[in-house]
Simulated assay, not measured.
Amino acid sequence: MISVNGLSVSLGGRRVVEDVSFALGAGEFAALTGPNGAGKSTALKALAGVAAVEAGRIEIGAAPAASLNALARARRVAWLAQTRPVAWNLRVEDVVSIGRFTEAPAAYDRMGAEGRAAVDGALAKADAAHLAGRAFQALSGGEQARVHLARLLASPAPCLLLDEPCAALDIAHQLSLMETLAAEAAAGRTVLVVLHDLELAARYCRRVLVMEAGRLVADGAPGEALSAEVLGRVFGVQRGADGALFRGPR
Rank of each mutant, 00 (worst) to 15 (best):
S3A: 14
V4Y: 02
G6E: 09
G13F: 02
R14H: 09
R14N: 03
L24Q: 09
G27F: 07
G27K: 07
E28Y: 07
P35L: 00
G37V: 07
K45E: 14
L47E: 09
V53N: 06
A55Y: 00
A62P: 04
R73Q: 11
R76P: 08
A81F: 02
Q82I: 01
P85I: 02
W88Y: 14
L90V: 04
R100C: 11
A106Y: 08
R116A: 03
A118P: 06
V119G: 10
D120S: 07
A132N: 02
Q137Y: 11
Q137G: 15
E143Q: 15
Q144G: 11
V147E: 11
L153I: 01
A154Q: 01
P156R: 11
P158V: 09
L162N: 06
D163C: 03
C166Y: 03
A172M: 10
Q174A: 09
L177Y: 02
L177R: 10
E179Y: 08
E179F: 02
G188V: 04
L192G: 07
L192N: 13
V193T: 15
V194D: 07
H196Y: 05
D197L: 08
L198A: 05
A201C: 03
V210R: 04
V217G: 00
D219Q: 01
D219T: 07
G223S: 11
E224G: 12
E229K: 03
E229H: 11
R250N: 12
